[in-house]
Amino acid sequence: MSQWPDTRILDLLGIELPIIQAPMAGAHDSAMVIATSNAGGLGSLPAALLSLEQLREELKTIRQNSQRPFNVNFFCHQPPAPDEQKAREWKNLLEPYYRELGVDFDAPTPVSNRAPFDEAACALIEEFHPEVVSFHFGLPEKSLLDRVKATGAKILSSATTVEEAVWLEQRGCDAIIAMGYEAGGHRGMFLSDDLSSQVGTFALVPQIVDAVKVPVIAAGGITDARGVAAAFHLGASAVQVGTAYLFTPEAKISAAHHKALRTAKESETALTNLFTGRPARGLLNRVMRELGPMSDKAPAFPLAGGALMPLRAKDPADFANLWAGQAFRLGVELTAAELTRRLADEALAKLTRR
């Protein structure tokens, strides 16, 4: 019998430990998912940057190397209409950097893309039957969501406000990820683009717990066992941890990202829309400092990244996104399996201490 004070997520998802490894597009692959799930947590595969062929191979690899439940995560944004004037103004703003780095400013601008959940991705879910499917930026259209539910998958999605949590519950989510302001990567906000509506994890979690009947998963600023235990004290049934897993050997991050995580000061993260057009938390670098982390000139998500791609190729430390949550300084060097078990073991010790 589990000693955890709330076992609803364990029972719902069929996992042993209430530790969910966050899906971090571009930062890891199936190896981290397999290691986390085999350790008793829930590994999560990010699909937003994968082609259908890549997604199929990753799903096949996971199924071949783990019998445990795992999660597949998709974005649910609506691709924007091209805006040539906006794109031109954005690239012109970056022109001095092109000249400085010797990059051909007149070459065609690469296309930055994130794939939203669609018919083809849904067909792969129907083929591989992952135990959990999670979404970011809301939920897909009802016909697709119904098909995912018909596979038996449990549905999770991120809420950054109480209003979003209630909206998700009303549309059939089995559990809500309460994503606080501290979290690294893209904000999951979808009912509003007003950043002033965003609150911290430990203010958000208990309010969402009080507002919905489904279990709540705390996310944002949780990097060690203290954060896990605190989330449970506030009514969470599990935690989703991202940045801490970037310190594991299973992470597939650049050398620049790796170095920044280990050398930046604890205050050096900010929400920025420069890299994709949508607010996401990352470590401060040159382009964020010089242009300001938020710019009204950045094209709509996910198009902003295209003009930065040639600069990023030349200088990833200064021109690539270095996603990280506010508690990144608490990261430790462990394997994904070791991290999963340590977070659970140490948190449970705190929660059951007499």
Rank of each mutant, 00 (worst) to 15 (best):
L168S: 03
A225Y: 10
A230P: 01
G152K: 14
A219Q: 01
L234C: 14
T151G: 11
D210K: 12
A153R: 09
D224E: 14
C173M: 03
A165M: 14
I208P: 08
H186N: 03
S157N: 01
V209E: 09
T160I: 09
Q198N: 03
L234W: 15
C173S: 02
A231Q: 13
D224N: 14
G185M: 05
D193S: 11
G220V: 00
I177F: 02
S157K: 09
Q170V: 05
V166K: 08
S196E: 09
A150K: 15
E169R: 01
L156Q: 15
G185D: 10
T161F: 05
A231G: 13
A159F: 04
K154R: 15
D193G: 15
C173Q: 10
E182I: 03
I155L: 14
A153K: 01
P140F: 09
A218V: 12
D193P: 10
G221K: 11
A175D: 12
S196V: 05
H233D: 06
V205G: 06
E141F: 08
G172N: 15
H186R: 05
T201A: 05
D146H: 03
V209T: 09
G180F: 08
M179I: 06
M189K: 07
E163Y: 08
P140R: 11
R187I: 03
I177R: 01
G172W: 12
V212M: 12
K142R: 14
V162Q: 14
A150L: 12
A211C: 00
L191Q: 05
K149E: 15
R226P: 01
V214I: 11
L168P: 13
I176G: 02
E182K: 01
L204R: 04
Q198M: 11
I176E: 08
E182T: 07
A230N: 06
W167I: 03
Q198H: 12
E169Q: 10
T161E: 00
Q207F: 00
V214L: 01
V216W: 02
D193M: 11
A159R: 06
G184P: 07
Q170Y: 04
G188H: 11
A218E: 14
G180C: 07
F202Y: 14
P206Y: 00
V212D: 12
T223S: 15
D224Q: 07
V216Y: 02
H233V: 06
